[in-house]
Design a protein around this nucleic acid. Structure first.
Lengths: 96, 96
DNA sequence: CTTATATTTAGATATTTGTCTAAATATATG
DNA sequence: CATATATTTAGACAAATATCTAAATATAAG
């Protein structure tokens, strides 16, 4: 995972909505497609970017492909975010 | 502040580096410019995007313009990020 | 094997983005 | 006022991005 891939992935509102939806439950590409007003080809492009950032994983299930959050990478990403935002230092040996 | 403006602002590595630098201390445009290998005009463009997202504020000081983090918006942004990433619900009336 | 369904890939296109150079604006000072 | 310094604005341009249509691939089922 490159940090930059994660930030770029998160910059698009459709992709953030996909992540939010997957936070509720893992879903097939088709089920996700029903929630967004664009072609399946366009959605597939967004899926690729999310996979590239390793924010989601896929698993084939017959004709379907099931997308799910990659929880551990989501947690890494959260840590990166907090590093940028928090006033406190994270993961240093500094005494409080 | 539109949420989208914040995400877009954060998508660029130069802008994230600017924020990190401002986390250390408020600085003039010129002082920031010395840290980045691009023209002042390009930097100014990045400053505008950060201002638009309300992540930074400016204050004129003689010939200089001092940039500083807008801490409260940074905190709002952090909350938005956590809403996307955390498995737990934030700010709901759900019982734990 | 043929047909149907699910999804992705390829290629085209309009829009957005990051950068540059040159010019403009704002302030300070002789 | 004239000149120097600091910063922004305007305009151009190449690269990246989001979307579409059409075609390709993968699996299931008759």
């Amino acid at each position: 995972m490159s940090q930059q891939n994660v930030w770029k992935a998160l910059a698009d509102p459709t992709r953030r909505a996909i992540l939010k939806s997957l936070k509720q439950e893992s879903q097939t590409a088709g089920a996700l497609a029903e929630q967004f007003p664009m072609t399946r080809a366009s959605l597939s492009h967004h899926f690729n970017i999310l996979k590239n950032a390793e924010l989601v994983r896929t698993e084939r299930r017959g004709q379907h492909i099931v997308y799910s959050l990659n929880v551990s990478v989501m947690e890494d990403a959260a840590a990166i975010l907090m590093d940028l935002f928090s006033t406190k230092n994270t993961a240093t040996d500094e005494r409080s």
